[in-house]
Simulated assay, not measured.
Amino acid sequence: MTAVWGIVNVTPDSFSDGGRFLETGAALSHARRLIADGADVLDIGAESTRPGAEPVDEAVELGRIVPLIQALAGTVPLSVDTTKPAVAHAAMAAGAAIWNDVTALGTPGAPEMAAELGCQVVLMHMQGEPRTMQHAPRYADVVGEVEAFLLARAQAAQAAGVARDRIWLDPGIGFGKTLQHNLALLAALPRLVAHGYPVLLGASRKRFIAAIDPSEADGRLGGSIAAALAGAAAGVTAVRVHDVRETVQALKVAAAIAEA
């Protein structure tokens, strides 16, 4: 069955739950709930990448994320959602095993750091950067361009010494994309899966759902599950979600139907 990654945002400004889990104790309680709800992996981030988000100082990011990873080490596999090689290094030392990078190891020294750490790494596509990515994004061929970018970044990672079997791809739903771009990428997921890399899909509570059915972030459960089921049907390895229990249940039912 498709794996479920639970989102833990240790931030004051994430688009859906910013500020709710900024304090380590609250974040730890939330993380433990997600594990109890069936999360296979926890993806922990301390710098928001929502549209318009401002960068976070490295020391601040480390202070938010390292104590939480240390407290959760030994539970389920932990992923650190960061663009900074030094933060990834500290996270792995604290007990994480996966580096989820929205810049696809685009920071200087990042591919080499990933090779040194020997961790799994998620390469995500983003047009621009969080502060400006939703300012009229344009593509001639969104599926082809995202696919080519991700394959090029995978090759760059391998050239730096990252093992092929440690590399994941993520099309970056909502990161520099319009509604139609997102829908085209979701419809073309089998094409990305066919390259043989594990694919992570992060569509949970994204704005494209509200563009189809107007709703606030916490009112997009149905759309989030629909996207997760589409990803599972396309063969993605995992979905990254806020609502773990509901997504696990939906995937279990879909898998049972498929096996009947």
Results as ranks from 00 to 15, higher is better:
217 A>G: 04
181 H>P: 08
165 D>A: 15
179 L>V: 11
142 V>E: 00
178 T>H: 08
149 F>R: 04
168 W>L: 08
173 I>W: 03
179 L>H: 14
192 L>S: 03
218 D>W: 06
169 L>D: 04
199 V>H: 01
176 G>S: 08
205 R>A: 05
199 V>Q: 03
154 A>M: 04
206 K>G: 01
169 L>N: 03
162 V>C: 06
187 A>Y: 05
221 L>W: 08
162 V>I: 12
218 D>P: 03
156 A>H: 01
189 L>V: 10
166 R>Y: 04
211 A>T: 06
196 G>S: 12
170 D>K: 06
191 R>F: 09
139 Y>K: 04
193 V>A: 13
139 Y>E: 07
141 D>F: 09
183 L>M: 14
140 A>F: 06
205 R>H: 13
154 A>N: 03
191 R>K: 14
153 R>Y: 00
197 Y>C: 02
211 A>K: 13
151 L>C: 02
192 L>T: 04
210 A>M: 09
171 P>H: 08
211 A>H: 14
205 R>T: 08
164 R>T: 09
151 L>Q: 02
179 L>F: 12
169 L>W: 03
177 K>V: 11
222 G>R: 12
140 A>M: 08
158 Q>L: 02
221 L>K: 06
186 L>I: 15
153 R>G: 00
188 A>R: 13
176 G>D: 04
204 S>I: 10
187 A>F: 04
182 N>I: 13
170 D>H: 08
194 A>M: 09
216 E>G: 15
217 A>M: 06
203 A>V: 07
152 A>H: 09
193 V>D: 09
144 G>M: 13
212 I>Q: 14
153 R>I: 01
150 L>V: 05
214 P>F: 10
166 R>Q: 14
174 G>N: 07
141 D>L: 10
194 A>Q: 14
193 V>G: 05
222 G>F: 08
184 A>G: 12
198 P>M: 09
222 G>W: 08
141 D>V: 11
149 F>G: 02
193 V>N: 07
152 A>K: 10
150 L>K: 00
